[in-house]
Write a protein that binds this DNA or RNA. Structure first.
Ligand SMILES: NC(=O)c1ccc[n+]([C@@H]2O[C@H](COP(=O)([O-])OP(=O)(O)OC[C@H]3O[C@@H](n4cnc5c(N)ncnc54)[C@H](O)[C@@H]3O)[C@@H](O)[C@H]2O)c1
Ligand SMILES: NC(=O)c1ccc[n+]([C@@H]2O[C@H](COP(=O)([O-])OP(=O)(O)OC[C@H]3O[C@@H](n4cnc5c(N)ncnc54)[C@H](O)[C@@H]3O)[C@@H](O)[C@H]2O)c1
Lengths: 213, 213
DNA sequence: GTTTTATCGAGAAAAAAGTATCGATATAAT
DNA sequence: ATTATATCGATACTTTTTTCTCGATAAAAC
């Protein structure tokens, strides 16, 4: 099977999961084929944009019909790397950390959080949703032994850089960071920030503009 | 004071919180002035881009010096609507809901989650981080009485549309949605999706491309 | 069987976002 | 005092992203 290593824009990459969520809903309803026109209407996008996004995944459609829901689902998942699970470690078993540890659907998104690490001795030793919380000191050896590629950072902002450094030192290839702090990483390592504050900024800015005309 | 009701791109809006996080760090360190060149270096952006983003907030700088950290912080906060707190209700006191209810820093970001609602009788009546969990049936009257503008949705995807409909019916003006479901809202209401899966998609796609060259 | 219609896919056009250039200016160095 | 330098802010330019147009095609309608 030809691997699609097409490089696409971040914008495209971020629309693909939206399509996937819709496709999953449709599949559950027994729908078999879907057109880009339909997908576009659902999100108020341009149909051509959806077509170009879909093109990146390598799936081809048929005129007048569109795309097979199952086929497109598969291609998007493959393209996003959601077909086989990536093991991950989580640093910071606090409120956000707990929520992530308990999120069953990550399985659908190719993410498998294997264990958590915390510097607080009171948290160490416990199990959260069946996942062990261990002391930070055990992390480096385990990253190497278990070939962990992804580190999830849910520590307070002022400790985020330290956590990231430790993870990268240990050999992690990608960081998923939830702390609102500007982080420095070496060349070659992937840093992705899950910044809720960015989303909130868009909301509150829009809201204030609507409320004060 | 002149209110800045400039409409800016979503991209700009999402970079502003980044600058703010940096400014807060600098302010804590006692730094008084900052140049766009410096900010740009920190995030690996173009200095001109930072200048344009900053321009949107209405803050003016001085040549050779840059911007006052305090002044810029203030203007960004004002522009984002983070200077005065917006009251919000949260629907779905599960794992993610709990994390949000316990997040102290929302205060800094102009968000004040007042109470939570859940349909599970076992959750109703409890207090989570000092915030009451109430039955959904009480929500509409309270939205009206307390003039709540923001509804936060942290229910499972299949119940998200119902939660959103109920909130909007009750009079909420803006929805912050965490469920991975395509939602329909009427004209005039603001919908902002905090989609962790989008961020994860970028990460896993990049990672698979790095791992399989 | 012919026409109509909905869709894809490719390429062109338009719009938006990002980047470079340059004069003005405020400070520091000579 | 003069020169050098770092920065802003305005404008011009470039690149990227989005949208439009159109021919090809597969199914449905007539
Ligand atoms: N809770 C939310 O809703 C929310 C929302 C947006 C962003 N965030 C961000 O996510 C991060 C975590 O937030 P939270 O609410 O879970 O905080 P929290 O205080 O509940 O949890 C932080 C955890 O990290 C641990 N920790 C601290 N320093 C550590 C270190 N150096 N190594 C390992 N563990 C360490 C603490 O012991 C604690 O268990 C913060 O950066 C926060 O800003 C949280
Ligand atoms: N936990 C995470 O890390 C995470 C990450 C990304 C997205 N999400 C999304 O956030 C949402 C919540 O996730 P979670 O992990 O907190 O789930 P959860 O199952 O822990 O919590 C859901 C809560 O919503 C309540 N609920 C269900 N239907 C309701 C309704 N109609 N009205 C009011 N309350 C209702 C349930 O009683 C429960 O308390 C989901 O849509 C999930 O996909 C969660």
């Amino acid at each position: 099977m030809a691997q699609h290593t097409v490089v696409v824009s971040r914008s495209t990459l971020k629309r693909l999961p939206l399509y996937l969520h819709l496709l999953e809903k449709l599949q559950a309803e027994g729908v078999e084929t879907i057109s880009c026109t339909y997908i576009a209407k659902e999100f108020d996008f341009d149909p051509t944009q959806v077509r170009k996004d879909v093109e990146a995944t390598g799936e081809v459609g048929t005129a007048r019909i569109g795309f097979r829901v199952a086929g497109l689902t598969d291609k998007i998942k493959e393209f996003l790397g959601w077909n086989n699970a990536h093991d991950a470690f989580l640093i910071g078993a606090g409120n956000m950390g707990k929520a992530l540890l308990g999120y069953k659907d990550f399985e659908k998104y190719g993410l498998n959080i294997v264990a958590a690490f915390d510097k607080d001795p009171k948290k160490v030793g416990a199990k959260i949703f069946g996942k062990e919380v261990m002391p930070l000191s055990k992390m480096p050896a385990l990253v190497k032994r278990m070939h962990i590629n992804i580190g999830i950072v849910t520590v307070p902002a002022e400790h985020a850089q330290a956590a990231v450094d430790a993870l990268i030192d240990a050999g992690v290839k990608a960081i998923w960071n939830f702390a609102p702090a500007p982080l420095k990483i070496p060349e070659g390592v992937i840093l992705e920030n899950a910044r809720l504050t960015q989303s909130l900024a868009v909301l509150t800015n829009n809201l204030t503009r609507v409320l004060k005309p």
